[in-house]
Design a binder for these strands. Structure first.
Length: 561
DNA sequence: AAAAAAG
């Protein structure tokens, strides 16, 4: 049977130039460095003119725990004296005589040990002590009982590392940028201090704003916020179309407003929404929001509109490249930088795998085969574009798999339904673009498949971060074809950095090419299809080639080769 | 380059 050329089979093209600059921007990863560092991507080919940049962006020297200062971050040095510290314990000792001073020094030492234990790295002056328990929220910061009750009710027993450090920082009125792995509780880390700071509901204008890069994430954050605020009378509003249409925004007031950037920007420009009383601004997935060219120009007016001089701003993300820190530096004052683990690495609770799929056809067949062998829902499949998502959805619709699809060409209702159905287990497999790659928390996703190779290291980290959340384990499979090989090393390095055992030789391009040729040859000759996993031992020897014959139901499979 | 972000 003839099958016309399908878009899905047309392959994916990436902007190799963009990738090359990315590669150059990120530097060689040094094992010895115990402090969190930037992306550990490897430079491009030796002839790459951009290579010069790599040495140019040599790593900043950072002093270790004792001083906890960072060169090149002037923002941290311009520390105004600790603003009205809410931290009762610290207040006590700071005013006391020399005995109290000694006590303070001891405390600083204890904090350093504690941070080390939880892999928390901080920089900035007078960083507040990390949280030992949630109970400290009331002993140190006078947290109200409703919040502690809600925390307990939702099973938050012990704070995660990012929560331990970011919460006291924000409660001490310090601005903060925080980087912690996917699924490590960043949302609670900014919601909890926000609720405590606002104390109780008031009709006093808009008091807190949270910006999220996608509507889905904004919706999810709103829900989390409401859950946590239960029992208090806070007005928590999501900026939806209806809200914009039905309310006079110039007189609009609520305690917490959650929005996507563009919508809020338009509200400022056209509807004269008043943000001058905002006390608390959170940029979630900050690096996405600061993405050059697009979102960035929507963020700036929003940040400007929040003109309250005593505003506390914070940035959160699992990936925080240098340029975002530079930008942050330009808008923040007296900020504390909190990094959990190593900066820009994937979550360590995810088992990561690279699978060579030979070709575009091979990808689809590999997918079908792996589903036929074992489908362990829920499964998330990421593709590179909206059209690819539609195509793949079309392909799987003929199978007995309950698949859903989500991308930005769908209506808002369709998008909501796709997420809800997936959450409810009505669909087993969700095919998605990067819309839901960030921040979305689907309980129990145990497998993420990168059907199309991610277009950056950050995208990879966020995509696979949909699994292995809140201490659970997860699996991530990344399919690749020959076209992706130049970018393989990039991902392989991320895998390595997050403690994943991976064949080092995968990163060696010439070596990989040879393997690919062997595999292609074998596959053509012996099998109806290609789905080949190969394992390479640590010394670089090819251990096994496995190709499993596949009997396809569809015409595509038999004519594919 | 694509995706996402409005109306």
């Amino acid at each position: 049977m003839e099958k016309g050329p399908s878009f899905l089979f047309a392959g994916v093209s990436f902007d190799k130039k963009k990738f090359a600059t990315d590669l150059a921007r990120f530097k060689e990863n040094k094992e010895s460095e115990n402090l969190a560092d930037d992306f550990s991507f490897v430079e491009g080919e030796k002839t790459d003119p951009e290579k010069a940049m790599v040495s140019f962006v040599k790593k900043r020297k950072r002093k270790s725990i004792a001083g906890e200062t960072v060169e090149g971050f002037n923002v941290f040095k311009s520390s105004k004296q600790l603003a009205p510290a809410v931290d009762k314990e610290k207040e006590k000792v700071e005013d006391g005589p020399s005995k109290a001073k000694k006590e303070l020094n001891k405390q600083i030492e204890r904090d350093a040990v504690f941070r080390k234990k939880y892999n928390i790295h901080v920089s900035g002056a007078n960083v507040p002590s990390p949280l030992r328990t949630f109970a400290e929220l009331s002993s140190r910061f006078g947290c109200e009982s409703y919040l502690l009750r809600n925390l307990a009710e939702h099973g938050y027993k012990e704070p995660t590392p990012i929560q331990r450090q970011a919460i006291p920082v924000l409660l001490s009125d310090r601005e903060c940028f925080a980087c912690a792995p996917t699924g490590s509780g960043k949302t609670l880390a900014f919601l909890c201090p926000m609720l405590m700071k606002l104390r109780c509901a008031s009709k006093d204008g808009i008091r807190a704003v949270i910006l999220c890069p996608t509507r889905e994430l904004a919706t999810q954050t709103t829900r989390e916020c409401k859950k946590l605020a239960k029992g208090n009378k806070f007005q928590i509003k999501l900026m939806k179309k209806e809200l914009v249409r039905s309310t006079d925004l110039s007189k609009f007031s609520c305690d917490i407003l959650i929005s996507t950037p563009l919508r809020l920007r338009l509200a400022i420009r056209r509807k004269k929404i008043d943000l001058s009383r905002v006390e608390y601004l959170v940029l979630d997935e900050a690096d996405k929001l600061f993405e050059v060219g697009n979102l960035l120009k929507h963020i700036d007016p929003v940040v400007k509109a929040c003109s309250n001089p005593s505003i506390v701003r914070s940035l959160f993300s699992a990936t925080l490249p240098d340029f975002v820190e530079e930008l942050a530096r330009s808008i923040m004052h007296d900020a504390v930088r909190v990094i959990v683990g190593r900066k820009n690495t994937a979550s360590e609770s995810i088992k990561q795998k690279l699978v060579f799929a030979g070709s575009e056809e091979g990808k689809l067949l590999a997918l079908r085969q792996s589903f036929a062998e074992s489908l362990n829902p829920p499964v998330l499949i990421f593709v590179q574009s909206k059209d690819r998502a539609k195509e793949l959805y079309g392909e799987l619709a003929f199978d007995d798999i309950r698949a859903g699809v989500i991308h930005s060409d769908l209506s808002q209702t369709q998008r909501e339904n796709a997420v809800d159905d997936f959450r409810a287990g009505k669909t087993w497999v969700l095919i998605a673009t990067d819309v839901i790659a960030r921040g979305m928390d689907f309980k129990g996703v145990n497998c993420v498949i990168n059907y199309d190779f991610p277009d950056s290291g950050a995208a990879y980290i966020h995509r696979i971060g949909r699994t292995g959340r809140a201490g659970r384990s997860g699996e991530a499979i990344t399919l690749y074809t020959e076209d992706d090989i130049p970018f393989l090393r990039n991902i392989a390095n991320l895998m390595k950095a997050s403690g994943c055992e991976h064949p080092h030789e995968l990163g060696n391009m010439s070596m990989s090419r040879n393997y690919v040729n062997i595999l292609k040859h074998k596959a053509m000759g012996c099998y109806e299809f290609i789905s080949i996993c190969f394992t390479v031992t640590s010394c670089g020897k090819l251990l096994q080639i496995t190709g499993v014959p596949y009997r396809s139901k569809s015409a595509a499979a038999s004519t594919a080769l």
